[in-house]
Simulated assay, not measured.
Amino acid sequence: MQWIKAALSRVIGKQAEQRALTFLVESGLRLYQQNYYCRGGEIDLIMQDQQEWVFVEVKFRHSSRFGSAAEYFHAAKRKKFTYALKQFMHQHRLNPAMVPHRIDLVAIEGEEIQWFKGV
Rank of each mutant, 00 (worst) to 15 (best):
A97H: 05
I43W: 13
V99I: 07
G40R: 10
A84M: 02
Q51A: 13
K117E: 15
F66T: 10
T82M: 08
I108G: 09
G40C: 07
E71D: 11
L29N: 02
I113T: 08
Q114P: 00
Y32K: 05
K5P: 05
S9N: 10
D104G: 07
A97S: 11
M89F: 12
K77N: 11
H92K: 02
Q51H: 12
S64C: 09
W115N: 12
K86C: 02
F81V: 00
T22F: 01
H90P: 00
A75Q: 14
L31G: 00
H92S: 00
V106S: 06
E26S: 12
H62K: 13
K5F: 09
L24F: 03
A69S: 12
E109W: 01
E42N: 09
F55W: 12
G41M: 06
G110L: 00
P100C: 05
I108Q: 09
I103C: 07
V56M: 11
V11L: 14
Q50A: 14
G13Y: 06
V99E: 08
F60S: 05
M47H: 10
V106I: 11
Y83E: 01
W115R: 13
R61C: 08
A69V: 02
R65Y: 07
H90V: 04
R30V: 05
T82I: 12
K14W: 09
Q34A: 11
N35P: 01
V11Y: 11
V56C: 09
K79T: 07
G41Q: 09
Y32S: 07
R78S: 03
K59T: 10
Y83K: 04
V106C: 07
M98L: 14
A69M: 05
G67C: 10
R10W: 06
R78T: 04
S9Q: 11
